[in-house]
Simulated scan of single mutants.
Amino acid sequence: MGKISLVAALLLCLLAFANANRFSVTVTEDDIENPQSCQEQMQSHRLNHCRMYVSRSHQYYNDNLSMVTDDDHEINQTQEHLQQCCQELRNMDTQCRCPALKKMVIQDCGSGQCQESTRLFGKARYIPHMCNLQPTRCSF
């Protein structure tokens, strides 16, 4: 009985270790040779469609990220902005996506949308998930 418990404990430890190491980041030679900083990427990729998606979608989505409007034109436009936003994010390095989205919301806050900044951050936080990109959720 003691041997079975020991084997079971070892198997659980192995599973936990394998699961913990499942998500890793690989640095390639290209990353080292071409270290374009996130700041540079944020300047070259202004995330205009992401900005439009966040600013429009907060009017039409409830907290569960499902549409609450019957206006098909608005829904189609919002979805088009999301698709283009996903492409904008794909053009950025993985580690730069969340900082770029955060900067985008902060800039919009400076444009007079501060009253809604919490809601804008909430929408921007889940854009990578909606685009099926990593990281799937930004923590800002």
Rank of each mutant, 00 (worst) to 15 (best):
C50K: 08
Q79G: 00
R22N: 04
I127W: 04
Q84A: 11
Q39F: 06
H49C: 05
C13V: 15
R22V: 03
H81V: 03
N64L: 12
K3W: 14
T26N: 07
M130H: 04
Q59R: 09
D72W: 06
T69F: 01
R119L: 14
H58D: 09
I75Q: 08
D31M: 10
Y61F: 15
M104I: 00
L120P: 07
F23G: 07
T118K: 15
F17I: 14
N91H: 08
S55Q: 11
L65C: 03
P135Q: 11
C50L: 10
I75M: 12
K102Q: 11
R119P: 04
H49I: 05
L14T: 04
C98K: 03
M42W: 07
Y126I: 12
D93H: 08
K102D: 14
R56L: 15
T136L: 02
N48E: 13
V54C: 02
E33H: 09
E33Y: 10
Q36I: 15
L11Y: 11
S57G: 08
E116G: 00
Q41M: 13
A16V: 02
T94V: 13
L101C: 04
I127E: 01
V7P: 01
D31N: 14
S66Y: 06
G2K: 15
V54D: 05
H58Y: 13
T118L: 12
T78S: 14
A9T: 14
L10R: 12
D30L: 13
K3I: 15
L47Q: 06
V68M: 13
P35T: 08
N76P: 00
C114A: 13
K103D: 07
M104Q: 05
R22Q: 06
V54P: 01
Y126N: 08
L11N: 10
T118P: 05
H45T: 11
T118A: 14
Y126K: 13
E40A: 13
V7T: 13
Q36L: 09
I106D: 12
R46N: 08
T28R: 00
L6K: 02
P135G: 10
C96G: 02
N21H: 12
R46H: 09
Q41A: 09
M67H: 09
R22I: 05
D93A: 10
I127M: 15
R137M: 11
R97N: 07
Q41F: 03
C96N: 04
T78Y: 02
Q134C: 09
D93M: 11
Q134I: 07
S55W: 01
N91K: 11
G2S: 14
T118F: 09
V25C: 03
S55C: 06
N21E: 12
L6W: 01
D72C: 02
R46I: 11
L10C: 13
Q115Y: 06
Y60G: 04
R22W: 02
K123G: 03
S44Q: 13
